[in-house]
Design a protein around this nucleic acid. Structure first.
Lengths: 227, 227
DNA sequence: CCACAGTTCGAACGTTCGTTCTAATACTAC
DNA sequence: GTAGTATTAGAACGAACGTTCGAACTGTGG
């Protein structure tokens, strides 16, 4: 595991940056590879895409790739980590400008869908290859995921409290994530609405859906289903 | 491709059934293998699970497995086809007993979630390995899927018409499927509600969500989101 | 007993997998 | 030019992949 490859000490360490540019040549090259890798994983899945596929699509020799990272797993890890960090970072910035509980949920939905559709391939790789990373890679991604989940949960709890509602915020959050994340299975940019419109429609469904659950309604046995 | 293996002519043809029992020994054995395969695909994914994994978990030699089916792909195909057919068949039976448009949607949701939770592993394999089958296998599964989708779409259209509502039923169906299918990523039988309760909650969210979109409301620009 | 289909398996097939070794090239500084 | 570091690639590694082959079992009917 102790690595002596050039890739090991890069990226976060960035030894002796000869220019003060935000990105070294190494970083830019790696980013390009990550983009090609995202494409391959998107189309064939992580297990289904081989390093040789990746070599072909990125126009670099098989061995040459390993100068930039130490394993296929690390590649997936870098893709997922960068995607998650970016979407959370953007969300945080947007949430700072809005204080109304309902609008904050709408901001969450819009941010998620906008990023999802603008980076559909990376987001599919993030959603679909959810539990393939193990050990430290896996737990680090899981932490980011939990953090994102928690933000949404708190938005819902605040909304619930402000409006005097009573519903299971866990089920609500997970239903919302399901609605939103599922789009990678069906959205075609040419025929389906854009992010803003989708966010409005899903926001309507979701918000009206949870809005009706007034407190003290004792939600049990409202409408019985036959059989 | 023209197969001479024993498995080729079986199952649907079932030559010379020596007992009139519903299932021959061959069919029962194959069904057992499919069950173990479902488990493996559930845990490691289709590409990630090897035939040797399957051999170990089912307690049969690698070569012995091929007496019952001709390829790994066929195995996935059989699992997905059986799962899809069963859930559609059960749905049809249940829908015959209910005529109220809203209740019919609730029946759809309940049927889906009950089957999903009772057969969580098979349903994950169905949802997660959605586009790995190619050619005739793939298109046959795609047809079943489209059929199931269409049933739900019609339920929504009927509901919409009966209540005088106006919303995109495509987005609504796909949002609903997202909510429901996403559960394979989070549901833990020990901590989460059962199917009936989940169906009630998701049904509430979804139905109230789409119910508010009254006709002629000109749903444009209802609430603007900053940025 | 034999014949024979139904069933199982050890061993191997050829291919592809992720990864590494080593040497060759490109680039920059002197 | 030379020195030295950054970058690339050909060839090969051992392991694992899906699949097949022929021989060996098993159990029943003659």
């Amino acid at each position: 595991m102790a690595s002596t490859s050039p890739a090991a000490s890069r990226l976060s360490a960035r030894p002796r940056a000869q220019r003060v540019l935000p990105e070294s040549r190494f970083d830019r090259r790696l980013a390009k590879i990550l983009l090609h890798a995202t494409n391959e994983f998107y189309e064939k899945g992580y297990e289904g895409a081989s390093m040789r596929d990746l070599s072909r699509s990125s126009g670099m020799s098989l061995a040459g790739l390993y100068y930039y990272f130490e394993s296929k797993e690390k590649l997936l890890y870098l893709i997922q980590k960068h995607t998650f960090q970016t979407i959370v970072e953007r969300l945080r910035a947007r949430l700072q400008e809005v204080s109304d509980p309902e609008q904050r949920i709408r901001v969450f939905i819009l941010n998620h869908l906008e990023y999802f559709l603008a980076n559909q391939k990376a987001m599919k790789v993030l959603s679909h290859e959810d539990d393939v990373l193990k050990n430290s890679f896996g737990s680090e991604i899981a932490t980011l995921k939990r953090e994102y989940y928690r933000i949404c949960l708190e938005l819902l709890d605040q909304f619930q409290q402000a409006k005097g509602l009573e519903f299971s915020s866990r089920i609500a959050v997970l239903s919302l994530f399901g609605m939103m994340n599922w789009i990678y299975t069906w959205h075609h940019p040419r025929v389906d609405a854009d992010a803003k419109e989708l966010a409005r429609q899903m926001g309507d469904i979701f918000l009206r859906g949870i809005h009706a659950a007034k407190k003290g309604k004792a939600a049990k046995k409202k409408t019985a289903v036959p059989n």
